[in-house]
């Protein structure tokens, strides 16, 4: 069981308020992702939940029990660190067994759990190696193994994939999602990568400067971002935000239209501009359009076969039903 509740939690370092009063409930079994730009307080929030930092005021409850002053080891949470934090002088087996040894389990039980975790994570062949002899992905799996043997109430992941190369990242992303489906344990995952957030999360918490900007499922955030910050942060490439005359036509201060919701054409469409850089991904092509009179650059997604050259004047047609409208304060107009 792992229902985590934060009540008016704050954190200050000296005079700097990193987390202003914050309320959040993470339901049992949920995969929650904290996402935000660097320095938004997402890692600090995770460390507060873990107990590695003391909260300045407010309270944290795990499964309904107040855990505010409970030391990290007794909160029943397991954490996977960005650097993996494996113990370099211990073999993989000893690394995974370490929390069990600290809990003074008997040797038979330790062996059973370690072997079980190793087979789940495909680490059986590497149990006697040292972390230094493993690849990045394998180290990552050892770190996860060390977390799952404890059978914690919740897993905490602190940007676990940021040290891996792109291909491995995609693979580990799937493995962690798979693990969550199988264990059905609460997981809290911190990342600055909105793709990881979108693909893995049941629920995303978008943070900026310690404030929660929006909480919702990936598609809720994609379809109805609550403000321009979330609109710009969720979705790749970023949503085009247009101010001024064009926005006024829609009775808004700012309108947002995603690159995938704009059609391109050589000769017809309400907007027009000059093609700058084109990024060809094979399946899709992203055009960066200048001189539209709307914004400095408008990004457009087109089919991979569409081809325009640098300097071509083309026309754009936004899909009217998916234009997001925001007021002067950046908040969404329903």
């Amino acid at each position: 069981m792992g229902r985590i509740q934060l009540n008016k939690v704050t954190k200050t370092f000296g005079d700097v308020e990193v987390i202003p009063p914050l309320d959040l409930t993470i339901e049992d079994g949920e995969f929650t992702v904290f996402v935000g730009p660097s320095g938004c307080g997402k890692s600090t929030l995770l460390r507060l939940i873990a107990g590695l930092e003391d909260i300045t005021s407010g309270s944290i409850a795990i499964d309904g029990n107040d855990a505010t002053d409970v030391p990290p080891a007794r909160r029943g949470l397991a954490m996977v660190f960005q650097s993996y934090a494996l113990y370099p002088h211990m073999s993989v087996r000893k690394n995974i067994a370490f929390p069990l040894r600290m809990a003074k389990l008997d040797q038979a039980e330790i062996d059973k759990r370690v072997n079980n975790a190793a087979s789940v994570l495909n680490l059986t062949d590497y149990l006697d190696r040292r972390p230094g002899q493993l690849s990045g992905g394998q180290r990552q799996r050892v770190a996860i193994g060390r977390a799952i043997v404890r059978e914690p109430a919740a897993f905490l992941f602190d940007e676990p994939l940021s040290n891996l190369d792109a291909a491995l990242r995609v693979g580990m992303r799937l493995e962690i999602s798979e693990l969550h489906k199988r264990l059905a344990t609460t997981m809290i995952y911190v990342t600055h990568d909105q793709v990881e957030a979108m693909t893995m999360a049941d629920r995303i918490v978008v943070l900026r400067a310690g404030h929660i900007e929006q909480v919702g499922s990936p598609l809720e955030l994609y379809r109805a971002p609550r403000n321009t910050f979330v609109a710009g942060f969720i979705g790749s490439p970023k949503m085009n935000l247009i101010e001024g005359e064009e926005a006024a036509k829609h009775d808004a201060h700012t309108i947002g239209i995603r690159p995938e919701h704009i059609a391109v054409s050589a000769d017809e469409g309400p907007w027009s501009g000059v093609v700058g850089v084109s990024e060809h991904l094979g399946s899709d092509t992203f055009f960066h359009i200048h001189q539209t009179g709307l914004a400095e650059t408008i990004t457009v997604r087109a089919d991979g076969e569409v081809s325009f050259s640098h300097g071509d004047r083309i026309h754009l047609t936004p899909r009217a039903d998916v234009i997001h409208r925001f007021d002067a304060g950046g908040l969404r107009i329903a």
Partner: peptide, 23 residues
Amino acid sequence: EQLEAAEMDGAPSLKRFWFIILP
């Protein structure tokens, strides 16, 4: 992070010294 990991793994400060710092 190694020390923090050990802390989360349930090692009190004396054991952190013995198992992490000393090696």
